[in-house]
C-alpha cells in the first residue's frame, strides 16, 4: 500500500499538491521566489519513518533532477525548515526531517523552498522534483 504521507499546500493538510509546483523566474536578473509547502499525512494515527532504519535514520527530502545537463539544475533550489534557514541553505542540498513524523496537522512540517534560476534561458523546466527517501508508514 502506498504511503499516505506527501506534500500539501496548507498547514492543516487539507489540500494535497497534486500538480507540479510552478515557480516563475525572470530571464534576466531573476529574484529568488520562496514558497512554503507542508509535508505530512491527513490520515489519522499514522507515523512515517525512514525505511532504512525506522526511527533512527531521518526522513530526507532530496532534490532530484530527471534531466541532468538540461532544464534547471538542482542547485537552483534551496530547502529549509524555516524562512530564515533559506539564507544559509545550500542549493541542491537535501533536507533532513525528524526520524519520526506523525500524521495530522500537528505533525505537519513546513518545507520552505527557494528557487533562483541560473539558466537564464526561456522555457518551462519540469525536470526537478522533491523526493523523500523510502518511507515506512506505521499505525500508531
Amino acid at each position: 500500500m502506498a504511503t499516505t504521507f506527501g506534500f500539501f499546500s496548507d498547514a492543516a493538510l487539507t489540500t494535497p499538491l497534486a500538480a507540479r509546483l510552478l515557480f516563475i523566474q525572470a530571464v534576466s536578473s531573476p529574484t529568488a521566489v520562496d514558497k512554503v509547502v507542508y509535508f505530512g499525512s491527513a490520515t489519522a494515527s499514522r507515523k512515517a519513518m525512514a525505511n532504512s532504519a525506522p526511527g533512527v535514520d531521518p526522513v530526507v527530502i532530496s532534490i532530484t533532477d530527471a534531466a541532468g545537463g538540461s532544464g534547471s539544475p538542482a542547485s537552483d533550489v534551496k530547502l529549509a525548515l524555516s524562512s530564515g534557514g533559506l539564507a544559509s541553505a545550500t542549493g541542491g542540498a537535501s533536507l533532513n526531517l525528524p526520524a519520526e513524523i506523525n500524521s495530522g496537522s500537528g505533525g505537519a512540517i513546513a518545507i520552505h523552498i527557494r528557487v533562483l534560476d541560473s539558466t537564464h534561458a526561456f522555457g518551462l523546466n519540469n525536470d526537478l522534483s522533491l523526493t523523500t527517501n523510502t518511507l515506512a508508514e506505521f499505525s500508531v
Binding site: T3, F7, I24, D76, A121, F122, G123
Partner: peptide, 15 residues
Amino acid sequence: SASGVAALGISISVV
C-alpha cells in the same frame, strides 16, 4: 502498513 516515496514536482518557468 504502508511504504513508498512521496514526491512533489517542481516546474520553473523562465520568462
